[in-house]
Simulated scan of single mutants.
Amino acid sequence: MTITVLAFIIALFFAMNIGASGAAATMGIAYGSGAVRKRRIALWISGIGVFLGAVIGGGEVVKTIGSGIIPSSILNVNIVVIILGAAAVSLFIANMTGIPLSTSEVTVGSIVGVGVAFQVVFTDKLMLIVVYWLIIPIIAFFLAFLIGQLIKGTERKLKWLKQKKWSRVLIVLVILTGFLEAFSAGMNNVANSVGPLVGAGLLSIGSGTFLGGLFVAIGAICLGSRVIETNGKKITNLNLLQGSAVSGLGAVLVIGASLFGIPVPQTQITTCSIIGIGLSEKGKAIFRKSVIVKLMKVWVVSPVFSLVISYSLVKIFLDFDLYSVSVVLCVFLATLGSVSLMKQAGKPQRKRGQRRDNIKSIVGGRNHEREPAAWRDFS
């Protein structure tokens, strides 16, 4: 009984973090473009949208998460706790850094880690999901770029679009598309928190989507401030027409995948759409922003991170294997050691550079033109 209660607590905590990450990001466009000026109102709109999407259309993806990647026969309360715990830890770390992270990636990574530990994974379904992960964000990027170019041309020809009387129409449009994107997030993301519970027979699909949707909405409203700030303000500034295009594009792609029961990285789709619009507006300069580099790193590391955590927990607590645990521990220590060595390798360079600056300051300005070549190349 205690472990079952723990499973529900972790699932609901995970649902709140899903709301703080993916669901909150859906209204980042409306907030960043100025259609919704108050961040709290934007979060409330996303919360309502994600709840309705979960209740109305979240069932198909719940089936995939619950039994489409690994057999439901191996799912029990202990396995559910491991899957949800590993995913929740990965997502919580991302939320604390303010990075919008794909909850689908960390959840699928955790499920695959359990499957690898028991040597039973539906590889065909997994490969299909991974292909969708790769293709849909790329499609979103290029479509957003093309839409951005079309918007630029349209705004040049139709100057009246920038008149004040039309701004109200565009504000309504971007809010509606943002709400639709939040709705699509509910359809796709609620499964990540309640899918394992449904697969283990602890919840029905209907009660799972309702409970999960409720807590995802609470997470978006209460914990989504950092992520909506990142997506809305730190990547690129969008006008109202661009914002509605990005939100509408993301919503259509995610709803389409959800109808087929495919968990897709909605946050990646939204962010890639924003970058595509930014590329059409500002050119290659958009790629030099450090926040995009940070996003890419987290996207690559997170599913692997959650996979390793869930695999290790299975081997430690359920199917103890000293060899496997030792290998994981060694890889972990080797990674930390490599990072430490890389940091130390950079320090001598800075010290030599500092020494050159000290020498130059000592010899003074009158000898600057006669600075030996060896000093100029010292660093």
Rank of each mutant, 00 (worst) to 15 (best):
10 I>V: 15
10 I>K: 04
13 F>M: 11
19 G>P: 06
20 A>V: 03
26 T>A: 12
28 G>A: 04
30 A>T: 12
32 G>K: 05
33 S>G: 08
34 G>S: 08
37 R>G: 14
38 K>E: 15
40 R>S: 12
41 I>Y: 13
43 L>C: 07
48 I>V: 15
56 I>N: 01
67 S>E: 15
69 I>Q: 03
73 S>Y: 09
74 I>N: 00
78 N>K: 13
81 V>F: 06
82 I>D: 01
87 A>C: 02
89 V>L: 14
92 F>T: 08
93 I>F: 12
93 I>H: 02
97 T>R: 13
113 G>C: 00
131 V>K: 11
136 I>T: 15
149 Q>Y: 03
150 L>I: 09
150 L>Y: 07
155 E>H: 00
170 L>G: 10
180 L>A: 15
188 N>T: 12
189 N>V: 07
192 N>M: 10
201 G>P: 07
207 S>P: 00
211 L>W: 07
212 G>T: 06
214 L>T: 10
218 I>E: 04
222 C>Q: 09
228 I>W: 12
231 N>G: 14
235 I>K: 04
248 G>T: 11
254 V>W: 09
254 V>I: 15
258 S>V: 10
260 F>D: 12
264 V>C: 11
284 K>E: 02
294 K>W: 08
294 K>M: 10
302 S>Q: 07
305 F>W: 10
306 S>Q: 04
308 V>S: 06
317 F>E: 11
319 D>V: 07
321 D>V: 04
327 V>H: 02
330 C>D: 03
330 C>V: 15
334 A>G: 05
337 G>M: 14
337 G>P: 05
347 K>N: 05
348 P>E: 01
351 K>P: 07
352 R>A: 06
354 Q>T: 01
355 R>M: 12
356 R>I: 00
358 N>L: 13
365 G>T: 01
368 H>L: 01
369 E>P: 00
371 E>W: 00
